[in-house]
Amino acid sequence: MKERELYLGIDVGSVSTNLVLIDENEKLVEKVYIRTSGQPIEALKRGLKMIRERLGDDANIRGVGTTGSGRQLAGAIVGADIIKNEITTHAIAAQKLVPGVKTILEIGGQDSKIIIIRNGVVFDFAMNTVCAAGTGSFLDRQAARLNIPIEEFGTYALKSRSPVRIAGRCAVFAESDMIHKQQTGHAVEDIICGLCEALVRNYLNNLAKGETLEDPVVFQGGVAANVGIVAAFEKALGKKIIIPEHYDVMGAFGAAVIAREKMMRSGKPTAFYGFRAVNCDYRAKSLECNGCSNMCEVIQISADGEPLACWGDRCGKWTAGAIHIERQSGF
């Protein structure tokens, strides 16, 4: 039997690290969703380990793509074929899973974005600039404060009959407003529902800015699991919101799809170092380069003491000079 050709997509985000394996038909084979917990390297190693346990050591991985805010770090560690920004990967993923999609709402841990698609290409996009009030981390924090598991947060919102109005522009003010409402005796359900509506209002004012949001509208990212937010979006937009099957790992899925496309076109072997990476000891070192007036903060990642990659420089002196060591067995 011919061995399946697999493509790995890795999304190292602020809150979660996701790994996705797709086959040559772009069907999702495996997915891993773990918390980054502030330690992207550890999370990545854990994720790779889980994938290896499920597949065995000699899985036929033909290409790797990384995305998310930790995309460069992840790319250096695993040996990525493509390193792509999260806006592009999310757009590609949504278009694969929901053909004909015109509007993508994405809310992740630290940022939220809106992507407008016309005629099958990204037409416009916006990313939150003002505040993290509308993002997953904030909801997480509020759930913890109210002692409600984040998984149940949304269902609380659905139980509300008269949501309170919360000021949602800034995370700090939203929180004080919530506390104020809670102290005046409002029910927890009403406060949570009010928060969901405030976040959606904030999101639409901040990002959509008068764009026409055409059907089909897709909602993805970790927060899409929150039924309260979904309901608030449907109410605000007056439209049906589609939650794609793999809404929580769309970035990784998109990265895998792009990696597959690139590898198919180029026909070259992958740069993937293999699963041996899980046993390596990675260290990040930063230094201020004094080569010129830019004073860039350069970061160097080394594996078991050997420099792997550099970035952070604006001139390319360090990036170009990074020693790409050949991985050998016994790592």
Partner: peptide, 9 residues
């Protein structure tokens, strides 16, 4: 990130 995404677009 915005710049890269814009160039992709």
């Amino acid at each position: 990130t915005r710049l890269e995404a814009f160039i992709d677009l």
